[in-house]
Design a protein around this nucleic acid. Structure first.
Length: 438
RNA sequence: GGAGAGGUGACCGAGUGGCCGAAGGUGCAUGAUUGGAAAUCAUGUGUACGGGCAACCGUACCGAGGGUUCGAAUCCCUCCCUCUCCGCCA
């Protein structure tokens, strides 16, 4: 969420910056500006009356022991004043609520270094790493390889759960586990992340903190609670399936004031992620690329505002380290303003080469969110022991999406006979250096 | 699922209608004392919003929301959370 006061003080700057995302994003500020002017005036009016009422009530306390007739008269008078104050308070609360609701739907402002552009097509490749593997045969897609190897089964998954679910078995399940475990070890042992294992069901509040709610409810799976019938508050306590561990890791410190010495905090978690993604049907129907449930190792950093852009470079390098370790060819793109996620100030997508598809596909997305999430989740820190609390900056990135990594390993390491070599760093965990069909 | 207890500042803990943003203690900070430290003493020590160049002033906040009242941390209602015991359970 943006700072309401900053927005109203520097409206043109914010509008210009948000318009880089889209015209609609820029226009969303107009109403904010109007409301914030009203807010200031109404606060002043309300507080003046409150002060008046408080003073009168003070006098009343002293009067209480004295003249009963005067007391009664004063009481009538105060009753009117009190009602007036209450009306103002209601009006103010409504105004503040409207403003908050509105601000919660306004996306973050792109950093100056983010390239212009409207869509994916305008993203800028900043580096390409490793060699594109060469094949003297027609490389297959991962779903074909997986099914021939007998480790990937979509029909049986559909039997259980419908479309967009998968079953990995045997070496497939083991490969998934080996990948996740390799990633976690790398991030914790080499890069200093603290591993976390937490809830997979989270409250709406947490999703509001990181920005999935209120705008993107349709992408989420919401659970239902069995509650007493006739209870129209059934939805109040509803829990959502975690769409990404970014939510739980970032919200770990929601509402807290941290000490500067605790920063930066670095967390990682391997969790399943659940996404409904209404409207995505038709894209990537086959295979593991787009699933309702997928495993992901997430990286989250909570840092002080200064130097947070460098922290994004660092986080991105941590995600890349996984691909380098696995010997996978990939490239890194800076997302253009129009393709940036809701909460992001700046984002690098890491795209791995999938020879079967003949395309680079996103395998990690690393974002700096500035103070946008921190303001929503109320995560602050003190730069010095006595200093006022300030908002932290948050970053998140996949390190990496495990399912898509498995896809990349299958496709990049495939051989003419349908077998798949096992990347060196996984051989010990898997107990083999090659997966064979049959 | 059943029974009970409770949610107050960084922490402990008092407070049953006005003098309570909140006693007392601990912690922390600054100062005094000391060769230095401990102990002791003094002072200070929440957040947000509004006004002001500033010192500062005002308003709100005692789990959340609503109600009663001229006035609520205090009384009433609803919800959330925590703890204890029993049941069930990986």
């Amino acid at each position: 969420m943006l700072d309401a006061r900053l927005v109203s003080d520097r409206l043109p700057d914010f509008r210009t910056a948000l318009t880089r995302r889209s015209a609609a994003a820029g226009a969303s500020l107009d109403r904010v500006a109007v409301l914030s002017e009203q807010r200031r005036a109404l606060i002043q009016r309300t507080e003046a009356r409150q002060a008046e009422r408080n003073a009168a009530n003070q006098a009343m306390a002293k009067l209480a022991k004295g003249d009963p007739a005067e007391f009664a008269a004063k009481r009538e008078e105060l009753k009117r004043l009190s009602e007036e104050v209450k009306a103002l308070e209601v009006e103010l609360a409504a105004l503040l609520a409207e403003m908050d609701q509105l601000l919660l739907t306004v996306p973050n402002v792109p950093d100056a270094s983010v390239p212009d552009g409207a869509s994916e097509a305008d993203n800028v490749v900043v580096r390409t790493v490793g060699e594109r593997p060469a094949f003297d045969f027609e490389p297959k897609e991962h779903w074909a390889l997986g099914q021939e190897l007998g480790i990937l089964d979509f029909e049986r998954a559909a039997k259980l759960s419908g479309a967009r679910f998968s079953v990995l078995s045997g070496a497939g399940a083991r490969l998934e586990r080996a990948l996740a475990s390799y990633m976690l070890d790398l991030q914790t042992l080499q890069h200093g992340y603290t591993e976390v294992s937490g809830p997979l069901l989270v409250k709406a509040e947490a999703l509001l903190g990181t920005g999935q709610l209120p705008k993107f409810e349709e992408d989420l799976f919401r659970t239902q609670r069995r509650v007493a019938e006739e209870d129209n508050q059934a939805d109040q306590g509803a829990l959502y399936l975690l769409p990404t561990a970014e939510v739980s890791l970032t919200n770990l410190h929601a509402g807290e004031v941290l000490e500067a010495s605790e920063l930066p905090l670095a967390y990682t978690a391997y969790t399943p992620c659940f996404r409904s993604e209404a409207g995505s049907y038709g894209k990537d129907i086959r295979g593991l690329i787009r699933q309702h449930q997928f495993g992901k190792v997430e990286l989250v950093r909570v840092v002080s505002p200064e130097g947070s852009l460098e922290q994004l470079e660092l986080l991105t390098s941590h995600a890349e380290a996984v691909l380098k370790g696995l010997g996978l060819h990939y490239r890194v793109s800076a997302l253009c303003a129009g393709d940036l996620g809701f909460a992001a100030v700046k984002t690098y997508d890491i795209e791995v080469w999938l020879p079967g598809q003949g395309a680079y596909r996103e395998i990690s997305s690393c974002s700096l969110c500035g103070d946008f999430q921190a303001r929503r989740a109320k995560i602050r820190f003190r730069s010095a022991p006595k200093a006022k609390p300030e908002l932290v900056h948050t970053l998140n990135g996949s390190g990496l999406a495990v399912g898509r990594t498995l896809v990349a390993v299958l496709e990049q390491y495939q051989q003419a006979d349908g077998s798949v070599r096992v990347p060196e760093v996984l051989q010990e965990r898997l107990g083999t250096d090659v997966l064979r069909p049959g």
